[in-house]
Each structure stands twice: as structure tokens, then as C-alpha cells.
Simulated scan of single mutants.
Amino acid sequence: MTTDEIKEAIMAMRTAFKKGDDARDAGLDANPPEVLRINDLAYGPDPKWNLLDLYLPKNVSGKIPVIINIHGGGWCYGTKETYQFYGLNLAKGGFAFVNPNYTLAPDNVFPGELDEVNTYIHWVADYADEYNLDKNNVFLTGDSAGGQMAEQYITILTNPKYRELFGYDLTDLHFRAAALNSAAFFIGDLGMISGAVEGYFTPEVRAQKQDMLQTEKYITKDFLPCYLTTANEDFIHDQTIKFDGFLTALGVEHICKSFGDADHPEPHVFLMNQKDTLAKQANDEEMAFFRAHMI
């Protein structure tokens, strides 16, 4: 695709996705009484994109276990506002929820979005004490493109050889588990990269940074325990099922669930829909998985 065609595809994706997300979230309470909401904290130099919201439960005493989110959207769509209701629900469950923006493609190309993820994870480490966050019980969530970046970041955390490719430094946060929802695994298979996605994984990136895209090559048995979800109408359903088998072969602790059936179909990243009964079940299971891995 030409540069103009990629930009057109990105704009079409943003329009369609936003229309669906706005309809999904219509009428939901953005300020539930159980949660203290702190908006637009700066984690980096960009005044538009390097912002995060922090949701703190009011019913927790002592240090608060923390979930750091990496939002999805095909690397070229999505904001923290798109994920606010998912995050507020997890905060109601007793977790602090870190809900950041990052700069989207085509203004950002691989690995620029992951670089910003790394920056906001360091922000959490630096400011955890100020917000009473428990550095010893940290969890990572990501969906779709965000799930792919979460997979990469976990691999960076757990394999020094992969970390060297990115040049990141570790923090003093102790990550205990992750939830990867409708994640875009196996992105190194270049057949997955087409259309709007080429705005992030440009031809130059694919030619020069292929080893960085081959995440699965670097995953070891030390990968974090994971709660994996997909759905019967998830267009990348098979990527999660394949990753399930991949982790099983490595001996990595994980749970893999596919939700929905012919009578109650569920789409890609259905967990974000806080009006959906099966999404509520999946979110509750996700939190239970995290609680089981707290120390």
C-alpha cells in the first residue's frame, strides 16, 4: 500500500471503531462512587499523548495492587477514554488501574509505542509511593495490539537477550501475572501485517527490525503466568489458541478461555463491554487470576 492508502485505511478504522466504542459505552458512569479518579497525569514530554489516568479503589487499606494497561486499537486507534470503563470496573474490584495513552501510528512507528509503554511503566515505579501503589504486586493487561505489546514487554522483562534488543532498563516493580485479551500474537508472521497496521510496521521496520518482531523466539519458561481470552467471533481467535499451545509446550502457567457460542456470539475484545454478561464473567475471572498470584 502507498502512504496515502495507509493513512486512508487508518482514518477509516478510527471512524468505524469509535462509532462502535461510543455505542458500547453509552450511558455508563465515568465517576463511580467506589473509585477515586485522577485524570491526565503526565508521564512523558508529549502534552497530548504522554498522559495517563489513575483509578484508585476507595475500599482498600494498605498498599494497593496495581494493574498497568496497554490499550489496543491496531496500533493506530484508541485512547485512555476508550478503556476507562474497563479500568473503572477493575478498580472497583480492589486494584489500582493505570490507564495511559500512547502516540499512535502513523505518527509513531515500531517500536515507538512500546518505548512509551516502557516510559509509563517507569513512571509507575517512580510515583508508586505517592499514590500508595504496591510495587510488589503489579499486573499487566493488554488487548489486541495492546496484547501484542504486553507479550513483548513480558518477554523483555523475563529474557535479558530480548531486552538488549530494545535497550530498556528494569524497574523495581514486581510483575506477578498478566491478562492478554484477543491479543495479536505471532506478529513476526508478516502475513498478519496489512492495511492500516502497515502504518506502524512499515516496510523499513519489517526489513530492519525483524528480530525484534520475532517475540516468540525469545519467550522462555520464565514468561509471566497468563490469563488468555478470545471469543467465538474474534477475527484473530486462532492466534490465542496457537499461543495457548505454545505456552503449554514451554510449561508456562496459564489459563485460556474462549467465550461465546452460536446463541450468544462474542466479538474481538468483548471484555471491554461492561454491559455484557460474559464480559463481566471474564473480567471477574481475570481479577481472580490476579488475586491468586498476589503475594
Rank of each mutant, 00 (worst) to 15 (best):
P32C: 06
P32W: 11
V35C: 03
L36A: 14
L36Q: 15
R37L: 12
D40F: 00
L41W: 12
L41T: 13
A42V: 14
Y43R: 12
Y43L: 07
Y43D: 03
G44M: 15
P47R: 14
K48G: 06
N50C: 15
L51R: 15
L52G: 03
D53K: 09
Y55E: 09
P57V: 05
P57W: 03
N59K: 15
N59P: 03
G62S: 13
G62V: 03
G62A: 09
I64G: 08
P65V: 02
V66P: 08
V66I: 05
V66K: 14
I68S: 11
N69R: 14
I70L: 05
G73P: 05
W75K: 11
C76T: 15
Y77P: 10
E81I: 02
E81H: 14
E81K: 14
E81T: 13
T82K: 15
Y83R: 08
Q84E: 00
Q84H: 12
F85V: 00
F85Q: 12
G87C: 11
L88E: 02
L88I: 08
N89F: 05
L90W: 01
L90S: 07
A91I: 06
K92V: 01
K92M: 11
K92F: 03
G94L: 00
G94Y: 00
G94N: 07
F95E: 08
V98G: 00
V98W: 02
V98Y: 04
N99A: 02
N99W: 01
P100S: 08
P100R: 10
N101C: 07
Y102C: 07
Y102Q: 10
Y102T: 11
T103H: 10
T103C: 07
T103A: 14
L104D: 14
P106I: 11
D107F: 10
N108M: 11
V109M: 11
V109N: 15
F110G: 07
P111S: 09
L114W: 05
D115A: 09
V117I: 11
N118G: 07
T119K: 15
T119S: 14
T119G: 08
T119I: 04
T119P: 01
T119M: 01
Y120T: 02
I121M: 07
W123P: 04
V124F: 10
A125M: 07
D126Q: 14
D126N: 15
Y127D: 05
Y127A: 01
A128H: 09
D129E: 06
E130P: 00
Y131V: 00
N132R: 11
N132L: 09
K135R: 13
K135A: 02
K135N: 13
N136L: 01
N136D: 13
N137E: 10
F139P: 05
L140Y: 00
L140N: 06
G142K: 05
G142C: 04
D143P: 02
G147M: 10
